[in-house]
Amino acid sequence: MKRMEFNYGRWLGVILKIAMGLFFIFPFLWMLSTALQTLKETLSFPPVWIPASPQWDNFVRAMNGGPFAIYAKNSLIITGSIIVLQFLIMIPAAYAFAKYSFVGKPLFFGMTLLAFMIPTQVTFIPVYLLLADWGLIRTLWPQIIPFMTNAFGIFLLRQYFMQIPQELIESAKLDNATEFKLIWRIMIPMSRPALATIALFSFVSHWNDYFWPLVMTDSVSIRPLTLGIAALKETEGITNWHVIMAGNAVLVGPILVVYAFFSRQIVRAFVYSGIK
């Protein structure tokens, strides 16, 4: 700092960057502000930025607008089960694709590729009919088992497994390790970053999912949080935005808290999944 020359260009850049950052965060701040306003404040012009006295009551009112304990419980069960099930199925499959050669491998791998490409929006009608035939429609299963095979996860993990040197596997075989032990003690510990990425990805996408529960459920008792919050729009009419935003803040809150603590890991995971 020999010369205290004020660099206008640089500071302009910093200010513009902060302004851009705000542009993407502002709606959530505005959501929070609205959630604490009175109905009168929400209708005023110019808008009230900071509520005169925070209306915590809005949250109580939002949470009374539906069985939110059940919604939350359903969301947790659904996402938790999906992740566990996916891991159990994905790891052996990724290992087989990475380390064995067998007849029909391109075909099976092609099937996985297809599963990756075909969106649920295409298959939901037949899957619904199928699950209805199995008598599962009034349970949480339709929101879990269709996601048992995580094709994206299989790709990513296979890629990761392939980078693990063959010598390590051979070494373990010479150490008389069973295939199970080899996967459990060597492959899994060595692929922790990939597994964390997949788990995080799976969590975010299923916690936030709206379409699938919407078309699979017809009763409140099996619906997740996203549907519950969206339903506030109907129950609170089109004027009680303060209550809707309070409910919305409840939905966004947990994700933002997780993000605040793990933003670096999450960002890295998403970048990783995007580049591979």
């Binding site: 851009m20 935005w241 960002v267 998403f270």
Partner: peptide
Amino acid sequence: IQGGIFIPHIVSIVSVSLVWLWMMEPSH
């Protein structure tokens, strides 16, 4: 800043839609 502009992507589309629905409300 990158961490900030990334937030909308990890938030549920339900939340995003509701917030913008409120911001785009014509009269208030």
